[in-house]
């Protein structure tokens, strides 16, 4: 796995718990510690009450497909071997959206509203990416 040649995230103190959670097979989403609003992607300020106090919640990992694309061209050489790959945009039960590739879902399955759940794909020792599977 040391020859991993795709783009990798550079977490900040504001975002690290998300990535640590994925390593532990938990989907952690950031929420406002004052008004409780869940937000994604992680950031310093709540756009509802402007509090800078944040907490992390364990999310259900469940949601429904909002839209998708099937990529046939490698815009980065690391993804050439994956082509074609499906990226779904998902309405999570917590009210935010997530984007991820799919596992075990084919083009014919895709529709708005398809129930899915998060899975975990350990792509190298220190990186686990989310994927979506049929719920």
């Amino acid at each position: 796995m040391s020859d991993y040649d795709k783009l990798v995230p550079s977490p900040t103190p504001d975002t690290q718990p998300y990535w640590t959670g994925l390593q532990e097979h938990r989907l952690c989403l950031q929420a406002c510690a004052d008004c409780g609003r869940v937000r994604h992607y992680p950031r310093p300020v709540c756009d509802s009450c402007w509090s800078m106090n944040a907490k992390w919640i364990d999310a259900s990992g469940r949601g429904k497909v909002h839209s998708w694309t099937i990529t046939h061209y490698a815009f980065h050489p690391g993804f050439k071997g994956d082509l074609p790959y499906i990226l779904v945009t998902v309405d999570m039960d917590e009210g935010v959206r997530m984007n991820a590739q799919v596992r075990g879902i084919v083009e014919a399955d895709l529709r708005v509203g398809l129930p899915v759940k998060v899975g975990y794909d350990k792509v190298k020792d220190d990186l686990t990416l989310p994927v979506f599977e049929k719920a």
Binding site: S10, P11, T12, T15, H76, F79, Y85, N99
Partner: peptide
């Protein structure tokens, strides 16, 4: 999106 989407393979405007 550089941190959260590009590692998933969502990189260019077309995607």
């Amino acid at each position: 999106i550089g941190e959260f989407e590009m590692p998933l393979g969502a990189i260019a405007p077309a995607q």
